[in-house]
Design a binder for these strands. Structure first.
Lengths: 231, 231
DNA sequence: TGGATGATTTTGGTAGGCCATATTATGGTA
DNA sequence: TACCATAATATGGCCTACCAAAATCATCCA
C-alpha cells in the first residue's frame, strides 16, 4: 500500500460530478431502460424542462450520446433515439465475440488462479439473480463478469469498446436472458469459460467466450425477427 | 428511371454540413495532424476566436472529441489534448489486430475475387505513395485498404470502432511507416493478407492481418520507448 | 524570503434571442 | 367538396451576454 492508496482511503467522496455528467447519465439511462423508445424524438427544449437544465447542457449531452451511437441526428429534423436494426445488432455481437474471446484467452494465459476465482464469484451472483428472478441483477452481474475478464488483464480500452457497444443492445440483452432455458444455458457456457481459464487453456477459453456470445446473438436474432426463441 | 433518380442527377451538392461538424473536423484534424500537441490546453474562448464560432459550438465539439478519446477533461481545469501512453497504444493495436483479423477471415470466406482485386488496388496506391515519399498518401491509402476489408463484408460497425481507435494513434502510425524497411515489409505483409483472401484461406488471412498489425505495434513500441529515452 | 491577499483567467452553467427550415393549420378558390 | 397557396407554429442551429466558483497569477507586506 502506497501513499496514494492511503490518502485515497480517507478522501471524502466528493460529488465531483458536473451537472452535465449527471444529465448525461440520466438521459442515457432513460434510453437504455426504455423510458425513451427507439425512434422517439428528443426535443431539446422539452429535455431542458424535464431535466431542469439549460439548453447548453442538453445539447452537449445529445452530442455525446450521438457519438456513442445511442442517438441519431436527422438533418433538419433533430435528434431521435437511435433504432437498432437486425444487421447492426449482429455486428455488435460479432465484435463482442472477438474481443471477449481475446480477453478470455489472455486470462487463461495468465495462469493466475485469482482470475478464475473472481469470475466464479460473478457467476455465483448471476445464478443467484436468476433464482431470484432479478433480471436487472442478471444483467449487472453479467456485465461485471465481463468487466473482470478485461480488467484482470488490464485491457480497459477493449472493455470501454465492449461497454460502449453493449449499451446499444441493452434491450436485446434483457430479452435474451429471459428466454427459455437461458438461466441454465447461459451460466453453463460462462462456467466453461472459467474452466478453460483455470486450466490455462487459451484456445478453449477463446472458443468458449465466442460460443457464449454467439448463442446470445442467435437468440437476439430470433427475438428481433419476431418469433419466440424456443432453443 | 423515376423522378427521384432524375432530380437526384441534377441536384446541386449542398454543403449540408453544419457549422458544428465543420468545426469538429477542423479541431480533430488539428489534433491528429499535431497542430495541437498532447497535453496542450484547449481554452474555449481561444478556440472560439481561432475557429470564428461561438462557445456553444466549441463546447459541443470538445465534448464530442472527449467521447472519441482525443480530448481529456481535467475537472475544473478544462480540456487538454489527450496524451497516449505506451500501454494504451499497445491495447489499441491489439484490438485492431483482433478486428482486422476477423474482417480478413470474413473476406476470405466470401470467395469473391472482386474483394482481392479491390484490395490489390489500394495496395498499389500504397506502394506508389511510398515510391513518391508521399507519407500522407501512405496513411490515407492504408486506411482505405482496411476500409475496403471491412466494407466488402459489410462490417461498418467494426470499421467505425477501428477508425475511432486509429485516430488516437495517428501520430504513431505516421512514425511507424517512416521506419527503415517499412516501405518493403509493410506492403509485403499486406500482400500476404490479399493472397490468403484470394485463396479463400480464412485462417491464413486472419493470421496475416494479425501479423501485420502486430509488427506495426512492435515498431510503435520501439518508437515510443526510444523517444522517451532520447527526449 | 516567504506567505497572505487580491486580481485575473477560465470553466461550468444559465438566460434568452435571432434566423432558417419543416410541419401543420387555415382559408380561399375552382 | 377537393385542392392548393399561405400563414402560423415548432424546432434546430447558432449567437451574445451574463454569473458563480475554482484555479492561477501577481503583488505587496512582514
Amino acid at each position: 500500500m502506497n501513499d496514494d492508496a492511503h490518502s485515497a482511503a480517507i478522501r471524502v467522496e466528493r460529488p465531483a460530478k458536473t451537472l452535465r455528467e449527471l444529465a448525461l447519465d440520466k438521459v442515457r439511462e432513460a434510453i437504455v431502460s426504455g423510458y425513451f423508445r427507439p425512434g422517439d424524438r428528443l426535443v431539446e427544449r422539452d429535455l431542458c424542462a424535464q431535466l431542469g437544465v439549460s439548453r447548453t447542457i442538453v445539447r452537449e449531452v445529445l452530442r455525446h450520446l450521438e457519438s456513442e451511437g445511442l442517438v441519431a441526428n436527422l438533418p433538419n429534423k433533430g435528434p431521435i433515439v437511435a433504432q437498432l436494426n437486425h444487421d447492426e445488432a449482429k455486428q455488435i455481437y460479432e465484435i463482442r465475440a472477438a474481443l471477449e474471446g481475446m480477453a478470455a484467452r489472455l486470462c487463461a494465459e495468465q495462469h493466475n488462479p485469482a482470475i478464475a476465482d473472481a469470475l466464479d464469484k460473478s457467476l455465483e451472483d448471476i445464478k443467484r439473480s436468476y433464482r431470484d428472478k432479478d433480471m436487472a441483477g442478471v444483467l449487472a452481474h453479467t456485465s461485471s463478469f465481463y468487466q473482470t475478464l478485461f480488467s484482470m488483464v488490464d485491457r480497459h480500452v477493449a472493455w470501454g469498446v465492449v461497454n460502449l457497444l453493449t449499451v446499444r443492445i441493452n434491450h436485446l440483452r434483457s430479452m435474451t436472458i429471459k428466454t427459455q432455458n437461458r438461466d441454465v444455458q447461459g451460466p453453463a457456457q460462462m462456467a466453461r469459460i472459467v474452466d478453460a481459464i483455470r486450466r490455462g487453456d487459451g484456445d478453449g477459453a477463446y472458443q468458449a467466450a465466442m460460443d457464449h456470445v454467439t448463442s446470445a446473438s442467435a437468440i437476439a436474432q430470433a427475438v428481433l425477427s419476431g418469433r419466440q426463441a424456443t432453443d
